[in-house]
């Protein structure tokens, strides 16, 4: 009951915000548009109107997406009653920034401003940069701090950017599951996410014929499909993975994803289906009137929508036919 009153305001507010998401018809119109400029015109009739108005050059549409992401997080942070939930959902942006900064530092280059998220994560970029300047990471959450220090200490022996990704991705999921500990719905969501990432990692490792030790190092600890499940399967052909996961919720994702890989040698379908799986999981819970579900759903929907726009815009700028763009498109939330 205490929860009802905690979430009542936020859930109702999110319901109104959900109305402003793009619907299927608008996405279809973007897809059918002649060229990138016309696709942007469709966006100009939606909630993105003012952002499109400020855009000077079609090729800079990434600025629009970054600006929207920032705006949505800023808005939600202002009224949401459960900071841990937002912290967990925004942590991936902190980790992204950390990766970029660590790689730039390791390789002795400037971090390019375009690939960073300045104000979306929990720690503003300026503060992160200050931490790097002073080499003092005490203000980072414990899991991330440990990872950054481990990378800092080991870089001289192992100057490998991929290693930064591996360590930080693992730290991210440890951090997320610790944050989600008191919010069962969120925990379930991150567990699904970690499982899907692990399945994809396993497939990649098998395709690239990397060794078993490498697999052990890159698997995330967050999922509830145990590490030994994957290491046991390592010496089997990939098809066995489909059989073993046939009764899991991921059966369809794995079957169709692998089928496309065998046919065309790419994993884009797997990635799309994995995203759709997570979106559907959240969607099936979003009508909960009091609880974190509605907001998790909304934020995921916004990120999904930005991804959709990005895929369409990139496709349009490269003059791909609509059908080919459609193949890569995720579902729409509303």
């Amino acid at each position: 009951m205490a929860n009802d009153s905690k979430y009542a305001y936020a859930v109702a507010r999110v319901r109104v915000l959900e109305n402003r998401l793009l619907d299927k018809g608008q996405v279809d119109r973007m897809l059918e548009a002649q060229g990138a400029r016309e696709a942007l015109q469709v966006l100009a009739e939606t909630n993105y109107a003012s952002a499109v108005g400020e855009l000077k050059d079609v090729h800079r549409f990434e600025d629009l997406l970054a600006g929207e992401l920032e705006r949505v997080y800023r808005e939600v942070r202002r009224f949401y009653p459960e900071p841990r939930l937002l912290e967990a959902l925004a942590a991936k942006y902190d980790v992204h920034n950390l990766k970029v900064l660590l790689k730039a530092q390791g390789l002795g280059r400037e971090a390019g401003g375009d690939i960073l998220y300045p104000n979306v994560g929990n720690i503003p970029l300026a503060k992160l940069e200050a931490m790097f300047a002073q080499e003092d990471f005490r203000d980072l959450p414990p899991h991330l701090r440990q990872a950054v220090e481990e990378i800092g200490a080991g870089w001289s022996q192992r100057p490998d950017p991929q290693w930064i990704d591996i360590i930080l991705d693992r730290a991210l999921y440890d951090h997320l599951l610790a944050l989600a500990d008191t919010i069962p719905f969120l925990k379930e969501f991150f567990t699904h996410q970690a499982n899907l990432v692990n399945i994809k990692t396993f497939i990649r490792v098998k395709i690239l014929r990397q060794d078993e030790d490498f697999l052990k190092k890159v698997l995330l600890r967050g999922g509830d499909i145990h590490q030994s499940f994957f290491t046991d399967l390592y010496h089997e052909p990939l098809e066995v993975l489909c059989d073993r996961l046939a009764l899991s919720p991921y059966a369809q994702v794995v079957n169709e994803g692998l089928a496309e890989w065998q046919e065309k040698g790419r994993l884009t379908r797997f990635e799309k289906l994995a995203d759709d799986f997570l979106l559907n999981f959240v969607r099936s819970h979003r009508h909960h009137p009091f609880g974190p579900q509605a907001l998790v759903g909304y934020l995921l929907a916004v990120e999904n929508e930005l991804k959709l726009i990005r895929i369409i815009m990139v496709g349009k700028l490269n003059k791909l036919p609509p059908e080919e763009i459609r193949e890569r498109l995720r579902d729409v939330y509303v």
């Binding site: 009153s5 305001y9 859930v11 109702a12 507010r13 109104v16 915000l17 009224f79």
Partner: peptide
Amino acid sequence: VGLVGQSASGVVSED
């Protein structure tokens, strides 16, 4: 009534 009021404020603040 209080609970509904909270929900209603959430909606009215946007709409």
